[in-house]
């Protein structure tokens, strides 16, 4: 009985230590600063930051907004803003309507691949920043 209690305590402590270390590591992962054309499928799952202008924008009936971010060299990447994230942006008075074709943005997020197309998925309000067009 005593041995079982000891093992239970060890497993509780190691669970808490493990989760704490993972949380600590997760909050300290830094985004790689890359140009749109430098983002490749090998980077899926990594956190990146890139800049460019919105070359297309479409809204889905379910509330998602799909952007395409392009750079001056005509490289492009998709930026999906899912409905939950859009709602969060609006709740925090982020003017989502000011993102239109031609708007310059800095986007951070996780690189993902959907139907063979690369995309950056922003997750926090601070992942979208407006830039001047210069």
């Amino acid at each position: 009985m005593q041995r079982k209690n000891l093992l239970l305590i060890v497993s509780i402590v190691s669970t808490i230590v493990g989760i704490s270390l993972i949380y600590f590591a997760a909050t300290r992962v830094e985004s790689a600063q890359l140009a749109v054309g430098e983002i490749t499928s090998e980077m899926v799952g990594r956190s990146v930051t890139t800049t460019g202008y919105v070359s297309s924008r479409s809204a889905h009936p379910d509330g998602h907004i799909f952007l395409t971010l392009s750079d001056e060299d005509k490289n492009r990447i998709s930026v999906p803003l899912f409905a939950g994230f859009v709602a969060e942006l609006r709740k925090n008075h982020f003017n989502i309507n000011s993102i239109q074709k031609g708007t310059y943005l800095q986007i951070s997020g996780l690189v993902d691949e959907y139907k063979g197309q690369l995309q950056i998925v922003p997750r926090k309000i601070s992942d979208i920043k407006f830039l001047s067009g210069d």
Partner: peptide
């Protein structure tokens, strides 16, 4: 934590 952070690809 593990599925939403960029620690490792999903």
């Amino acid at each position: 934590l593990i599925l939403n952070s960029p620690l490792l690809p999903k």
